[in-house]
Write a protein that binds this DNA or RNA. Structure first.
Lengths: 131, 131
DNA sequence: GTAAAAGATGGAGTTGACTCCATGTCAATT
DNA sequence: AATTGACATGGAGTCAACTCCATCTTTTAC
């Protein structure tokens, strides 16, 4: 499918899609100077959305895709790549801890919002009754 | 305490603190043209941090604080205020749904990260052994 | 084959959330 | 009283992640 359909079916804008390409996290197939997208790209977009929601930057998403995409388990790495990979691992372990923290926070906030909502509901009820 | 101490003990910068004041979510007591902060302000900063992590914008945080702060349960509301309050409630209900979605996503991503980590670990192991 | 719609490109503009800087004011220390 | 360090203010700058625009090329419908 072409970019307009892809935008419609992923709920993003054409500009965003081209921007993701520029950043390097979404490479379409190019046919006659026109971008083509398929099911896999839709999956990628879903993954990107989730990762963004979880607090990943586009650069971090790029890293993740680079190191987990098409990398065979018996790849021979240079010393530099090993260094880089170790850094990436550390980063993601940090992210894991961060997300666990976040899960807890979300639960706390849901409590707060619930109470706020009850308070507002009560207030509205009263004011509606009085009028 | 003054702004520097407050910054140190909340782990934020003086500029950020002044910025939050400008946005309207953190009002210090002003003594002799100098800002003063106390325990309550620390609590507020913690709440702000959590809300931000959960995806709230500063404007949304402001709304939440406005409607749940110092609002007595028997306040008499104008028609306008009722309108506004209803909108705020709707917003927060949306946010609730959003956060629940996010909780699920975080769990999915943790799976992905775990697998990615295992893959990277294996690769590193192999390359370390081979050298 | 031609006009209109869709797509591509490069670059400027926007938004939210800061961050930095210059200059001026207040406070604490000597 | 004077100096030094902390604080205040207004405005400019930054960064990520878009978003918009003008202009150009390709595709599609007639």
């Amino acid at each position: 499918m072409k970019i307009s359909e892809f935008a419609a079916c992923t709920g993003s804008s054409k500009d965003t899609i081209r921007y993701y390409e520029k950043v390097g996290i979404l490479q379409p197939v190019v046919v006659n100077k026109h971008r083509e997208y398929n099911e896999e790209h839709i999956e990628l977009m879903n993954a990107i959305r989730k990762l963004k929601h979880a607090g990943f930057t586009l650069q971090e998403i790029k890293l993740l895709f680079q190191w987990t995409g098409h990398l065979e388990p018996d790849t021979r790495l240079t010393e530099e790549e090993i260094q880089s990979l170790e850094q990436v691992r550390a980063l993601f372990q940090q992210k894991q801890a961060y997300m666990m923290q976040r899960e807890k926070e979300i639960q706390q906030i849901q409590q707060v919002l619930l109470r706020a909502d009850q308070k507002m509901e009560l207030l509205l009820e009263k004011n509606r009754r009085d009028s």
